[in-house]
Design a protein around this nucleic acid. Sequence first.
DNA 1: GTTGGTATCTGTGGA
DNA 2: AGATACCAAC
Length: 760
Amino acid sequence: MPDNSSTAYLSGLNDVQLQAVTNTDGPVLVVAGPGSGKTRVLTYRVSHLIKTGVKPYNILTLTFTNKAAREMKDRISIEVGPQANQVWAGTFHSIFARILRMEAEKIGYPSNFTIYDTEDTKSVIGNIVKELQLDKTVYNPNVIKSRISSAKSNLITPKLYEANEDLRTQDRMAKRPHTYTIYQKYVARCKKSGAMDFDDLLYRLYELFQKNPDGVLDKYRNRFQYVMVDEFQDTNQLQYAIVRKLVNYENSPRNICVVGDDAQSIYAFRGATIQNILDFEEDFKPHGIKVFKLEQNYRSTEEIVQVANEVITYNRRQIPKKIWSDKGSGQRIKLIRALTDNEEGKRIVDTILEQKNRSHLSNSEIAILYRTNAQSRIFEEFLRRYNLNYRVFGGLSFYQRKEVKDIIAYMRLVVNPRDEEALRRIINFPKRGIGASSVEKIAALAEANNETLWQSLPKVKVASRTKTALASFVKTINGLRKKLNTDNAYELTQRILEESGIGKLYKTDTSIEGMGRMENINSLMDGVKSFVDEAGAEFDADNQPDISLTTYLQNIALHTDLDDEEKSGDYITLMSVHSAKGLEFKSVFIVGLEEKLFPSFMSMDTVEGLDEERRLFYVAITRAEQFLTLSYANSRYRYGRMQYNEPSRFLEEVPRDYLENTSSISSRKINQEPNPSGASVKGFFKKPSAATRIDPKNFHPNDSSEIQAGMNVLHLKFGKGKVLSIEGGEANRVATIFFKDLDNPQKRIMLKYAKLQILD
DNA sequence: GTTGGTATCTGTGGA
DNA sequence: AGATACCAAC
């Protein structure tokens, strides 16, 4: 037993936290409400393990963001010192990528495989769609991508997909019968290119464990004696399957601890399922699972906690728990109603100034949270105008900028010449006379010979001028590759800039744009430089410090702009609600609370979708410590058009007693019209038909009691329709109406809320 | 093959 | 509104 001084850290924990920290052996589920000290429990648990003699390299902790992982490592090292660096703490993607680097050859990948990002993935799909001569509006790469992604997340291989009648029928119904073929080709092409997409980092590891060549699985079972998973509610089937492989086997000690909160599950769209928490309980029940519930909130005032509790009760199922705070009473929740998006921006920033003055808040204690990244612009404008320092997170990250991606494409091709997307990107950049038709010839030859573009490139039959250009391109890349083992990342990148001609291209560009690009390239170079200077410290005992370009690429592939080192300075945070998860601020502004925006129109057509939006709202509310401000605008510009939206239904779920301004919000009518067919809403956005061009001035709705079956009616948004039937009595009459102008014409409408004009 | 201008499309969240 | 695809003219 360690002496008192080394267990002193445990005294700062409450009873349940202490239990969760010290019950280290056997399966544990921690249900942790917002602000309940979840990170604390996890880090103390790891420290506790190490202090009681567990080797740090036998501990694996999986998180969702690099930031969470880094924070954890930092906090562990405060307790146990530098050996914290030997803990396997990282994101699912980064830890798995690291294992795959070591084992990739066992499943037919090169160890220096490329990681395809979203753009690469879409581009590959786009190319396949083109080659198959399919209509890319029907086979929208975004749609196909998400189908492929969810197939992989549910352990459905192309073979299984082919045999899966449900999926095939769905595709046929959606007029995309060839989705299966694209999936199959996509997988083959990634493999040929020596590339893994984000899902592959999970899927291929599962494959590795499943096939278990050379007993590789035992090696990792043995290495990871203690496994912890953060944000377990956000794991998908595939992730849980991998975790099970690692800990759930005959004679395993099953030292697994998962931490999660069903109320904060907000990633169903990428395959996460709350079912995993429920399954976890079942799966480990026979092995003496212990469940701990952290219900005390240490973050927020009573008002904020109560509002969050109340809002979440509108969801259907949840793990029963009652979050409470002893922080006492604070400010009521403020609601800002604005007429336009612009006014919303101004009034939010006014309120920020007021709060700063009255309550002496610093910028870093303030966050503006929105549903979509596109909403940041207006707030940026006002913040700039008022001279307030701010920083926008999300949106496109540094590494996704065009000029940066170009250079990274060179790096990628040098490291892995099979990388098809990198090759396509730079084969004619800077311009060297190799146009689209030449690239297509190369691609066709590669497809015919079942080889990579790089292999086909020297053999293709093209005009002699193109031939020369191709040869010179190959020579440049090969020359750079020769330096891979001798140059460090920085030296080689400099060489790339020089020999590719990119350096020259931008140096001679004196336009404002060009200078901005040059600036970005310089920051990239700075980044590479600091990687080279600092890399040594990043690696554990069993890894040599490595400052090669190969390693640099691996480091940045999973980088997001949330991971950028805390830039110095005191700034207001602007980010999506999704990226705010896990963070806290003294004052939080949740903006754009309007129907079709928050909740998003993409999620409004199902109860599940709405529940997830509501959990998202719950996450947003619980970020706040003291001040919470909600806002909406009656109109805003979206897609270049003015749009009028009703206030969000979520506002009605906020108990009035906790609102600062008690003048009722229901004086403004909140639209609760059920919207059973989301497809038609999407259709409405996509092709504004005649139905959308009704002039409101000529629209005179009748009283809903007059509506009868068989009538022809006019709806402001849906256009002309025929009432097919009416059900329900008096107050709750629901009409089924056929709107001929909609993609999905049959709608059920609550007459109480609908505005309909009788035509005859 | 390249250029520059116009038409068209698209549109949540993020590792 | 902004990005991208497409197309005619060089």
